[in-house]
């Protein structure tokens, strides 16, 4: 906490083990993890309770798992760059300058993918499968956009952002990136080999 001009005598406090911003972000991520766990469990539960042959719902397309995996590489590289920049404060701005566009590549790819799937009639309304796909992947994309915005803000205001807050934002980006493989495995996994049962989490 910043020291101010308060005239009151203050006893010394031991420095916090974890900065408040980082701790708050951990708690927030915990709640977010539970939300996505709810989404993914719901997806698995509906699949598990469906009568044989009805999941994924007939008419749902096979998801474009290969190009999505390609775009995911960009996401992973952006996280790696943020980690690297976190260790080298002098180069952090440059690292973020590459990491944010890399993350943006992933988001733009997803927008294109959404448009293509919508054009073949796979929509929020077409089946429960479509609803789950767009809700879960879309929720992750919104998180990615928020994380990229926050990283860009840190890069733009370098020096004016407290270290705790910058750390918290980096942590949030790691969460967004690490969440993606889990979502990919559950949502895209069955499309890789449609004969296999949905991956249970």
């Amino acid at each position: 906490m910043a020291v101010d001009s308060s005239p009151l005598p203050r006893p010394r406090r031991a420095p916090a083990v974890i900065e408040s911003e980082v701790f708050a972000m951990i708690v927030w991520i915990f709640a977010e993890v539970m939300m996505f766990a709810g989404f993914l469990s719901a997806y698995n539960l509906v699949g598990a309770r469906a009568p044989a042959g009805w999941w994924p719902p007939p008419g749902d397309p096979i998801l474009p798992w290969a190009p999505t995996a390609g775009a995911s590489v960009a996401l992973v590289f952006s996280a790696a760059l943020v980690v690297w920049g976190g260790f080298r404060p002098l180069h952090e701005r440059r690292a973020l300058g590459i990491a944010v566009p890399l993350g943006a590549v992933f988001v733009v790819y997803q927008i294109v993918e959404f448009a293509r799937l919508l054009s073949v009639g796979f929509t929020l309304q077409s089946s429960a499968g479509g609803g789950f796909f767009f809700t879960i992947v879309g929720a992750h994309a919104l998180h990615a956009i928020a994380g990229l915005g926050a990283l860009a803000w840190v890069a733009a205001r370098r020096g004016n952002v407290t270290e705790g807050l910058a750390k918290a934002i980096r942590l949030y980006w790691y969460f967004v990136v690490l969440l993606w493989p889990v979502i990919y495995a559950v949502i895209y996994g069955p499309s890789i080999s449609p004969g296999l049962p949905a991956l249970a989490i």
Binding site: A31, E32, V33, M34, M35, F36, A37, G38, F39, S41, A42, V46, L124, Q125, S127, A128, G130, G131, F132, T135, A139
Partner: peptide, 20 residues
Amino acid sequence: GPLIAGAFMLLFDQLLGTGF
């Protein structure tokens, strides 16, 4: 978290016509 997930799904069922 799971209830927020469920609330979004129910809201989509009500307003967007999804079939969760």
